Simulated assay, not measured.
Amino acid sequence: MGKGLNGKRIAIGASRKTEEMSTLIKKQGGIPVVRSLQGTVFLADKKVGPDLQAFVETGADWVIFTTGIGTETLVSLAEKLGIGERFLKVIRQAKAASRGYKTISALKKFGITPIAADEDGTTKGLIESLASHDFAGKRVMVQLHGENAPSLLTFLEEKGASVFPLLPYQHVAPDQETVALLCEELLNHEVDAVCFTTAVQVRSLFKFAREKGYGEKIVQSFQDHVLAAAVGKVTAEALKEEGVKRLLAPELERMGAMIVELARHYEAEKDLSGKEV
C-alpha cells in the first residue's frame, strides 16, 4: 500500500469503526484525528406514539418512506400500540414513494409497491421521481430517520402539500466541544480533509457553524483548503445541500474505499504538481 496521505491530517466524523479508519489512514501515511459529529440516534417510541395515533386517525393521500429500518420500526411501534392493522391499512390505501432499495424491500414485506422511487438512493433522486405528481392540497406523511430532510420537505410544501412527518428515531446532537474544535481546525486550516460517513454528521457540523455565525466561512474552508470525503451518495448529497461543491466519494460505498480514494486524490495532485501539496 502506498503513502498517498503522507503528512496529511485527516479528521474522522464518525463515532463507529474509528479505530479501523484510523489504521487505514496511518497505513497511507496520514495522521488521523477523531472528531465525532454523529451524536446519538435513539428510538423515540414515547414521542412518536401520539403522532402515529393521529396519523392512523386522519390518514394521508401520500406516504413517503426514506429508510428501511424506519419503515419497519413504524410498523412495529403501531403493533405495540394495538393499531398495527389500521396503520397498514392506511398506508396501503395511500400512494406510496420510497428512497433506497432497503426501503423498497421493507415495503414489499407489507405488500406495498411504491409508485415513485429514486434511482440512486438519494433524496434528490426521490424528489425527481415525485416532480410529475400533483401534491396541491394533499396530505403527505413523510417517514424520517433521526433528522429532517429539508430539501424533501421544502419540495412538498412548495408543491402545496400538507406535510405530516413521522420520526421513529430522534437525533441528539454530538458533543459541542468536539464540533467547536473541528470548526476551529477547519477555519485555521489545521486539517487537510474530513471523512463523513453519514448525512447526520454533515448536518451536525453545519448546524453548529450556522448557529455560531460562521457557516459560510466553513463552506469556504472546504472550497479552498479542506477536502470533504463522503462514504457514499446520500452523505455526498448532504454536503452538496450545505454548499460544499469540492468533495469526493468512492463508487463502492465503504469506509475503506473512501480512504483509498482520498489517498489517490492526493497522489494525483502530487503527480500533477511534481511535489506534495
Rank of each mutant, 00 (worst) to 15 (best):
K3I: 02
L5M: 13
K8G: 08
K17L: 13
E19R: 15
T23G: 06
I25F: 12
K26F: 03
K27C: 01
G30C: 12
G30V: 14
P32F: 15
V33G: 07
V34C: 10
R35M: 15
S36L: 01
V41A: 08
D45H: 12
P50S: 08
V56Y: 08
G59N: 12
G59H: 09
T67S: 15
T67D: 13
G68L: 12
I69R: 14
E79T: 08
K80W: 10
K80F: 05
G84R: 09
F87T: 02
G100W: 01
G100H: 08
G100D: 06
S105P: 03
L107V: 05
K108M: 10
K109N: 14
G111T: 02
T113V: 12
T113A: 10
P114T: 07
T122D: 07
T123R: 00
E128N: 14
S129D: 03
L130K: 04
L130E: 12
D134K: 07
A136C: 00
Q143W: 09
L144A: 02
N148H: 11
P150N: 05
L153S: 01
G160Y: 02
A161N: 05
L166F: 06
L166E: 03
Q170K: 14
H171F: 10
P174S: 11
V179K: 00
L181V: 08
D192K: 04
D192R: 04
A193V: 01
V194G: 04
A199D: 02
Q201F: 02
Q201S: 10
F208Q: 05
E211Q: 15
Y214E: 06
G215R: 01
E216Y: 00
S221V: 05
V226Y: 03
A229K: 10
A238F: 04
K245D: 09
L248Y: 01
P250Y: 01
E251F: 00
I259S: 13
V260I: 13
V260T: 15
V260Y: 09
A263N: 06
E267Y: 04
A268S: 13
K275V: 13
